[in-house]
């Protein structure tokens, strides 16, 4: 068995491992790096439970090799909160009851985060299309949409705030 060395910046921290070329990125994260917030729900790139960001783009980490991500910046659910302070999406999912069993939630939050980076003020249709690669079996999506809407509002307000203070001074 040949292995290759990979060096990935995960949630801002450089992590390294010697891996088989066939190792899936999701297994690198979960098993080599112990970041078990990223889940596996299918084998066919349908469910999105494994969604992470690679170089700023949302990706299904079960459909990417660890070696493909060598040198990349990866962000996972564990990197979303700032210490005790939840990311607005995490807060939104909690406030709006946007999760039940919680298994799809990390992938759903990561995809939503990418969506809001692309489109800070999405319509309900745009939100639903934006998470169409993430399956949830518990919630019927209603409260997930509300959670994303709440977070979008907070993120826009946070974006607007510094500008307002500059104007004021």
């Amino acid at each position: 068995m040949t292995t290759q060395h990979v060096k990935v910046t995960v949630n801002g921290e450089v992590r390294e491992a010697d891996v088989e070329p066939r190792l899936l990125l999701v297994h690198l994260l979960r098993e080599n790096f112990g970041l078990t917030g990223t889940h596996v729900g299918c084998d066919t790139s349908n469910c999105g439970a494994c969604t992470v960001h690679v170089n700023g783009m949302s990706a299904k980490s079960c459909t990417m090799l660890a070696v493909q991500a060598d040198g990349a910046e990866v962000k996972t659910i564990e990197g979303m909160a700032n210490g005790a302070a939840l990311h607005p999406l995490q807060q939104g999912f909690w406030d709006q009851h946007g999760l039940q069993c919680g298994f799809c939630t990390p992938g759903m939050i990561m995809q939503s985060a990418w969506l809001l980076e692309q489109n800070p003020d999405p319509s309900e249709d745009e939100i639903r299309l934006g998470i169409s690669g993430n399956l949830c079996r518990c919630t019927g999506y209603v409260n997930i949409v509300k959670a994303i809407q709440q977070a979008a509002g907070e993120l826009r307000a946070a974006d607007a705030a510094p500008v307002a203070s500059v104007t004021a001074s």
């Binding site: 979960r30 078990t36 917030g37 596996v40 995490q90 909690w94 009851h97 919680g102």
Partner: peptide, 21 residues
């Protein structure tokens, strides 16, 4: 009362413990 769920903080942080974990 619509009490927010006590179990959610671990799930939204990716800190749930499922069997594969």
């Amino acid at each position: 009362h619509s009490v927010k769920r006590k179990e959610d903080p671990r799930f939204i942080r990716g800190a749930g413990e499922y069997i594969e974990d």
